[in-house]
Every structure is written in C-alpha cells, then in structure tokens.
C-alpha cells in the first residue's frame, strides 16, 4: 500500500454518532477524513466535490438508501471505492451492494481493527 500520502475518506452516515466513531477510528489509523455527509444527496454532492479515495457508506438512510447512493456514485465514477456499513440482518442489501460494485463492507457494531483492515483491503 502507498503510505506516502494519507488516504482521503468520505464518511456517510445519517447518525452523527456513527460518523464520529468512524472518524475517530480512521484518524487513529492514519486516514484523513475529508468530508462527512448525513444523507444520500449530500453524499453524492460531496463525492463529486471531493473525489475521495474511499467512501464509507451507511446502507440504511432516510431518503436515498445506501445501495441507491452507491449506484449513483458509481455511475458518476465507475472506479469509486466504496465500503458499505451495515448492521446485522441486512445481508440481502449487502449482497446487492457488492454485486452493485461495493468493494467491501463493515458491520456494526464496529470492531476498530476490522474496520481498518477492511478499508486497507479496499484501497489495495
């Protein structure tokens, strides 16, 4: 992996608490959180604006759900690297997201080490 530059991450989650958690985990592990979005529309706009190396995308959000946002971002940038955030019991949606081009997924509640492993893997 290229460690010479901090990887730029956009964090998308409707819950401010979850965004904070992810941000903390990432900061401690040498990622740069370049932006946060609380809903799908915002996520798409921020993605266009920031062109991050990676997006963590909550799968259930009010309004546009994660799978739809994934599609829309990948329509704009087919090389977008997106990792879904999901809770237990959302397997079908996660499978759909992966078939829709998501690189990987992390499950809530977050295990910091697994989150970091997953994101590193997704950036390879």
């Amino acid at each position: 992996m290229d460690y010479s530059r901090k990887k730029r991450v956009l964090v998308v989650d409707d819950a401010a608490f979850m965004r904070m958690m992810i941000r903390d985990i990432l900061k401690k592990n040498n990622f740069e959180v370049v932006g946060e979005a609380a809903n799908g529309q915002e996520a798409i706009a921020k993605y266009e604006e920031l062109r991050p190396d990676l997006v963590t995308l909550d799968i259930t959000m009010p309004g546009l759900d994660g799978v739809t946002v994934l599609r829309k971002i990948r329509e704009r940038d087919p090389s977008a690297r997106i990792v879904m955030c999901s809770a237990m019991g959302q397997q079908a949606m996660v499978v759909e997201a992966i078939q829709g081009g998501a690189k990987d997924f992390i499950n809530k509640p977050f295990n910091p080490q697994k989150v970091v492993d997953t994101l590193r893997r997704a950036l390879q």
Binding site: S86, Q90, V94, I98, D104, F105
Partner: peptide
C-alpha cells in the same frame, strides 16, 4: 464472521 454470504461474496470477487 457476520453476514457470511456477503463476506464470501467479497472474497470471491476479490
């Protein structure tokens, strides 16, 4: 491991 199907799918894809 949680969500095994989704996990296996990412592994398979990779």
């Amino acid at each position: 491991c949680m969500l095994k199907v989704a996990r296996m799918l990412t592994i398979y894809k990779q």
